[in-house]
Design a protein around this nucleic acid. Sequence first.
DNA 1: AGGGAGGTGTTGACATGTCAACACCTGGTC
DNA 2: GACCAGGTGTTGACATGTCAACACCTCCCT
Lengths: 146, 146
Amino acid sequence: MSTPGPAESTELWLLWKRAHELVRAAVVADMTTASGLSEAELSVLVCLHESGGVLRQNAIAAALGWDRTRLSHLLTRMEKRDYLVRAKVANGVEVTLRPAGRRTVEASVPSLNDSTRRHLLDRLGPDDAKALRDIVERLLSGEDGR
Amino acid sequence: MSTPGPAESTELWLLWKRAHELVRAAVVADMTTASGLSEAELSVLVCLHESGGVLRQNAIAAALGWDRTRLSHLLTRMEKRDYLVRAKVANGVEVTLRPAGRRTVEASVPSLNDSTRRHLLDRLGPDDAKALRDIVERLLSGEDGR
DNA sequence: AGGGAGGTGTTGACATGTCAACACCTGGTC
DNA sequence: GACCAGGTGTTGACATGTCAACACCTCCCT
């Protein structure tokens, strides 16, 4: 064929990015209309909520794969809106979900479930969903030994 | 177990995001040291390069799944650095790669291939790579009829 | 010709993320 | 105790992305 094209690995990476971006855009659009939260804010709140409402700042950054600085700025903004509080602790900072934050997450989780099901699960079918899950878990498994 | 956890769909989505973020961070780090280009700039240059060096601005946005505004701002910055030029045309704007841009992409494509191979392909093995490719193509296929 | 309607791109104000430098704490080591 | 090393978080300047409003085409319809 006429197109030499990029290496297989790069091609796969570009396709993956596009697909990820596609799903992300759809989910973000749903979440914005449903809860008014940005993707980043929702990530933090869901993360906190799943852990019972209290987490070291460090742990959040690790769980989301984020940079410390980014999280710090975001938490500053979220603290002002009363979604959470920060308290100094042993070696670091402890973040605690506050009522406003808890209410907001709990209100948006159903929409999120719905959105991800429609834009991701339903478009894949059970076999592909299983396959995708295995693949991402394999990719992530190398990292846990951090 | 004790954790109720999110719905299957949301859980898969969060895992996928983490894995994507993990690979992205690794590839971006490589590319930054190799070429000094940001991810966004590299995306645009690769896209242009693969198409022979000329593309409608609109087509770039579609290929990358981006917003018009974002691309416009980025192209303004890249035009200043002489990576490309814009020219008004029939119904829209035509973007053309310039020598500096072409040199830069061509110099970074090998690094990109290498990086994506190490951080993605090699971590998956042939079967998973094939499976992932099928999955993302299926996700993207619904969009082409746009 | 006149006059929308839809598609394409730009602009400026603002939100968000990134980078490098710093401050702080804890734990070893002498 | 005094020191340094590593880990954690913050800050401010800057880069980048997003949003809403606008300008400009082209096509189509009467």
